[in-house]
Structure formats: C-alpha cells, structure tokens
Amino acid sequence: MSRLLVPILLAVLVAGIAAPSASDDVGEVARARQWQLGVLRLPEAWRASKGAGVVVAVLDTGVNGRHPDLEGAVIQGPDLTGAAGSAGLWGRHGTAMASLIAGRGHGDGRGDGVIGVAPAAKVLSIRVTLENGDPLRDKQRSGGDALAKGIRYAADHGAEVISMSLGGGSGAWEGSAEEEAAVRYAIGKGAVLVASSGNDGDAANRKNFPAAYPGVIAVGAVDRRLRVAGFSNRQDYLSVVAPGAEIVTADGEDSYVVGDGTSSAAAMVAGIAALVRSAHPDLSPHHVRAAIQLGTRLRPAAGFSPAYGHGVADALLALRAADRLGVPASPGPYFGAGSPSTTPASRTAVVAGMLALVATMSAWVVATHRRRGRDST
C-alpha cells in the first residue's frame, strides 16, 4: 500500500491566518511567506514561460480543485487506492503539492494565496495513496501496484510531467519491477518524472523509491539559507535540491499550512520541468533533466555531491540551459546509468522487490482560510 513519508513538522502558524477577523488577509500573508519565489527566480522565469499547455500529473492523495488557488487548474483522474478515504482526510497532501506546482493565487490580480512554479499549467490528479492519519490505511492492502498503474495512466493521458512526492518504506526499500517498468514506459512516452529524495537523511538515509529509479529526477531540500536540510536524503542518484523548509501550501478547500520536507522540493522542480516543457515542447525527458541540472546555482566544486546533487534548482537558469540545448537527438527512454559527476545525474541500479509507499511532509500545522475552526493536516 502507498504511504506518505514520515513528516517533518513545523510548529508555527502563518501569522494572522488563524484569526477569523483576519480572514481577508490570509491570502496576502500566505503569498508573503512564499520565500521560494525569489530563490527560484520565478518572476524573471515567468517572462519566458508559465507552463501553458503542459499537464503535470500529481500522484498523491488526490487534489481538491475547489481550493481558490487551484480553481480551473485541476483535471480529476482516477482513484487507484481502492479506498474512499475518511471524511476530512482526503486530498490534503496532494492539494498542497498541486498548489506548489500550478497554484494560481486568487483575489485582485491573483496577488493573494499560493502561486505555483508553473501557474499556467494544468494538474492531473491521480490518487495512489491515503493520508498518513487516515484510519482506513490499515484496512487497505499492502504492497499494491497503485503507483505503477498511476504512472502508466499519467503517461497514457497526456501528462508531460509526473510529480511523485512519495517514498519507499515498510521494510521494502529495493523498489519493484512493476514500478521500474512503469517508469521506463512513461519516459518512453515522453514524460518527465520527478520524485522526492526522502526525509530520513539525518537517520537511516535509505535509498528512496521512486526517486532512485533510473531516469527519475530525484530532489532534495534546502532551507532559507540554501543549506541542505538535515532531513534531506543524501544519495548518488540525487539530481538537484530545492526549497523544502517552512513552505506555505494550500490545504483542503480553503486553508493553508506550513511544513518541511522533500515533498515540497520535488513539487517545485516538477513545476520547473513544466516551464521548460512549455517553452521547449520538443525536448526529450533526458534533455529536460539536463537543462534542470545544468541550470543550477551553488554547484558543488566537483560538479556533483550526494547532498546537493548538481546544485540548487533555478527556474531562470534552467530555461536558459534549455535554450542552449535546442532539440538534440534523444539518447533513448532509459538514461539512468552513468557517473554522478556527469549530466544527467546517475541512478543506481534497481533491485526488483516489493514496495510499500510512504509520502513526505504529511504532518502539517493548519491555518484556517475563509472558514473558522477548520481542521487540516
């Protein structure tokens, strides 16, 4: 069964959001707290691309398209979990990730609320897991193939980018043959796959799937000072790092939350992939990843490190790198092997086995928006 990764909790509310009298200011506060906008150089990148025409599949707990920041952005896909989910626990993590990818904000000039990296892109919601706190999780079968089915569905239904803020757990960290085959299938169909590197970097630092599958862009997290977060997994298949600490996201139908984790970082890089794909629709998945890895800053002296990968993601530099790449011949759908000091980044060989998924960043602190006393994760 798919699971959400062990969360990193930030025990702070966004200022003013919890106060009912300040509900009109909630969106303004949420936007002000999006420190990643400057780090990723999004205002400059948006002059070239906002992700128009690109569909990003979000394989997660479901996405609530009724959130004001996601209105008109969400295409509802299938629920592959086999479980309805408990009331109040549906789609929170997925909605959070979708807002970081394609949030459009709201209000005058859409100047309030969460704006995503690719605000003109569409999100295809494919539910492959339940929320961490959902009591139905224990009744759901373990070791299911929801993720593999979700990857294939996304590739067959027009997703040019597939975002997976998920990770391997429950004692099965080897990956699975079904999922690896699905990854190869999606890349062969032209999809760019992005996944979170994992949140146990300061503990076991285990190999994390789907991030470790060859061809997937694996993303770690940095804090406001652009230092690698302690929880971010360090591995030789890491591609890049992106903001993943104190991140404000949409929640439920009308709330906002703040949290830490590589989930957020992966969603942002999926957004950058959408920007590149929109500007250069003929680039292969290999070359989209190359553009993202070439277009980084704070690159390690050796060109690569297990902590930073190829450096801190930068949307503007990625678009410029894509401009330089043009439309070279594709090296084929499976481009995982190679030295970690080269581009694209290496991917270690995958050992087939059982995988139960665990997704990142689920323990959140809830901030209410438009409705007093709303509960969320």
Results as ranks from 00 to 15, higher is better:
residue 270 A to F: 05
residue 179 E to A: 14
residue 208 N to Q: 13
residue 203 A to N: 14
residue 199 N to F: 03
residue 229 A to S: 15
residue 214 P to K: 01
residue 11 A to P: 12
residue 313 A to P: 04
residue 47 R to C: 03
residue 358 V to A: 15
residue 233 N to L: 02
residue 138 D to A: 15
residue 310 H to A: 08
residue 240 V to R: 08
residue 178 E to H: 12
residue 182 A to H: 06
residue 253 E to Y: 04
residue 165 S to A: 15
residue 357 L to Y: 15
residue 245 A to F: 03
residue 272 I to A: 13
residue 79 D to P: 10
residue 112 D to I: 00
residue 182 A to I: 06
residue 182 A to Q: 06
residue 377 T to W: 01
residue 272 I to V: 15
residue 362 S to F: 09
residue 233 N to W: 04
residue 68 P to Q: 11
residue 83 A to K: 13
residue 100 L to Y: 06
residue 3 R to F: 07
residue 371 R to F: 09
residue 139 K to E: 11
residue 184 R to P: 00
residue 271 G to V: 11
residue 215 G to S: 05
residue 241 V to T: 09
residue 242 A to H: 04
residue 1 M to G: 12
residue 339 S to E: 11
residue 144 G to M: 09
residue 81 T to G: 02
residue 309 G to S: 09
residue 113 G to W: 08
residue 331 P to D: 10
residue 107 G to I: 01
residue 301 A to G: 12
residue 192 V to G: 10
residue 168 G to P: 06
residue 61 T to H: 00
residue 334 Y to N: 12
residue 201 G to R: 02
residue 166 L to D: 07
residue 150 G to H: 00
residue 228 V to L: 03
residue 158 G to T: 02
residue 29 V to G: 06
residue 331 P to E: 10
residue 207 K to H: 02
residue 135 P to C: 02
residue 99 S to F: 11
residue 332 G to Q: 13
residue 187 I to L: 15
residue 103 G to A: 05
residue 55 V to A: 00
residue 95 T to C: 08
residue 141 R to L: 11
residue 362 S to G: 06
residue 203 A to W: 12
residue 331 P to S: 08
residue 350 V to K: 11
residue 240 V to A: 12
residue 8 I to N: 10
residue 52 A to Y: 00
residue 42 L to A: 04
residue 254 D to M: 01
residue 3 R to I: 05
residue 270 A to W: 07
residue 86 S to N: 00
residue 311 G to Q: 11
residue 267 A to S: 15
residue 326 G to A: 07
residue 194 V to Q: 11
residue 13 L to C: 05
residue 278 S to N: 07
residue 373 G to Y: 12
residue 364 W to R: 14
residue 305 S to C: 02
residue 370 R to N: 14
residue 23 S to A: 10
residue 99 S to V: 12
residue 254 D to H: 04
residue 345 A to E: 11
residue 227 R to K: 14
residue 27 G to H: 01
residue 156 D to L: 07
residue 330 S to K: 04
residue 50 K to T: 14
residue 224 R to I: 02
residue 21 S to Y: 00
residue 215 G to N: 06
residue 281 P to M: 09
residue 252 G to W: 00
residue 293 Q to F: 06
residue 173 W to Q: 11
residue 301 A to T: 13
residue 326 G to S: 05
residue 347 R to V: 00
residue 344 P to N: 08
residue 245 A to Y: 06
residue 134 D to F: 02
residue 203 A to R: 15
residue 365 V to K: 01
residue 146 A to V: 03
residue 127 R to E: 07
residue 164 M to H: 05
residue 221 A to G: 05
residue 177 A to R: 14
residue 286 H to L: 01
residue 290 A to W: 13
residue 45 A to M: 09
residue 58 V to P: 03
residue 245 A to V: 14
residue 273 A to P: 11
residue 138 D to I: 09
residue 258 V to H: 00
residue 157 H to I: 00
residue 352 A to F: 06
residue 213 Y to E: 09
residue 10 L to W: 02
residue 92 R to F: 08
residue 127 R to H: 07
residue 52 A to L: 05
residue 89 L to D: 03
residue 177 A to H: 07
residue 311 G to M: 10
residue 260 D to H: 14
residue 220 G to P: 08
residue 226 L to T: 03
residue 309 G to Y: 05
residue 171 G to N: 14
residue 296 T to W: 04
residue 251 D to W: 01
residue 248 V to E: 13
residue 256 Y to G: 15
residue 164 M to R: 08
residue 248 V to H: 05
residue 326 G to F: 03
residue 115 I to Q: 13
residue 124 L to N: 04
residue 142 S to W: 12
residue 260 D to M: 03
